[in-house]
């Protein structure tokens, strides 16, 4: 099992808050683990780091960390985080969110923060449904997916969150699954180090919710599903165009890593130019 070492546990976790509310087999623990290890690798000063979240299971994460946390309204974590970052550009701001929170009710904030290239690290636990309220259809529920509000199968096309982030202008975008915790950790590390909007999408199991209704009742079922249904970016790029079109798999890996002007830095420059004379 991929567990936090004693060092990670003692250094970053708020012991009093445990045990967590997460169900057996839930993917959030793995994402949290990868995040803490990434933070440790970067050598981030946890006292100069703010965790911001909205509503949903993944938004509970800041509560379990021994660091400053801002638990906000549904979907608005990125907007709150933008405020934190602009007021205190020296802080590292990490957003924990989920597919329903970030791409559903908060979709607008997501694309605009990516467009502005605000220096945030947004970690999205994509478990294909609104898990906390009991398995309702979300903006990433696959076509045909069964939820409480799509009992005969979802007919809506899902968002590809990473493609959305790229389209909106994010500087760093990676997509991994809990099947690949080490790669996920590396991506989060790079995201934290990136000066700009970094988005890390993590495909995660929701055994109690989406999994139960879609033949993935246990955490490992989702792992196996990921193994079957994902393809690494470099391998995908080696396929012919025809093979790419017909493979029907989710492309994972580091999908974008570019340099572009960052919002708080550009804003500071503007202030210097006009008001500091």
């Amino acid at each position: 099992m991929f567990r936090p070492s004693k060092h990670i546990r003692e250094k970053y976790l708020e012991e009093e808050m445990w045990p967590s509310i997460f169900c057996q087999g839930c993917g959030i623990g793995t994402v949290m683990n990868a995040t803490l290890r990434a933070i440790d690798k970067v050598g981030l000063d946890i006292d100069q780091t703010i965790f911001v979240s909205g509503i949903g299971c993944s938004s509970r994460v800041p509560g379990y960390l021994d660091a400053d946390g801002l638990h906000t309204t549904h979907g608005r974590a990125i907007a709150f985080a933008t405020g934190v970052k602009l007021a205190n550009p020296e802080l590292t701001v990490i957003v924990f969110t989920g597919d329903g929170d970030m791409a559903g009710i908060g979709g607008n904030h997501f694309i605009h923060a990516a467009r502005r290239n605000v220096d945030l690290t947004v970690i999205c636990v994509n478990n294909y449904n609104y898990g906390m309220t009991g398995t309702q259809v979300s903006p990433t529920t696959p076509v045909g997916g069964i939820t409480m509000t799509s009992p005969y199968g979802n007919v809506e096309s899902p968002f590809d969150l990473s493609a959305l982030a790229i389209g909106a202008g994010a500087a760093y975008v990676a997509k991994w699954a809990t099947m690949y915790p080490h790669e996920m950790m590396t991506a989060i590390k790079k995201g934290i180090e990136k000066k700009g909007f970094a988005f890390i999408e993590t495909l995660a199991a929701c055994p109690t919710g989406y999994g139960r209704k879609n033949k993935m009742k246990e955490g490992k079922d989702h792992m196996l599903w990921c193994k079957e249904n994902t393809i690494g970016k470099s391998r995908y790029e080696r396929l012919s165009e025809q093979e790419q079109n017909s493979c029907g798999k989710i492309v994972i890996g580091e999908l974008r890593n570019i340099e572009k002007p960052e919002f708080t830095a550009e804003w500071s420059k503007l202030v210097e130019q006009h008001y500091m004379e």
Partner: peptide, 28 residues
């Protein structure tokens, strides 16, 4: 839209619309 403690209302209505018991459009 799902929100506790209302959610079971919309779930039940979604089911009722889905089964054809009620001829209504349920918009998610």
């Amino acid at each position: 839209y799902p929100i506790t403690p209302q959610t079971t209302i919309s779930e039940k209505l979604s089911e009722i619309c889905g089964s054809g018991e009620l001829n209504a459009k349920f918009v998610k």
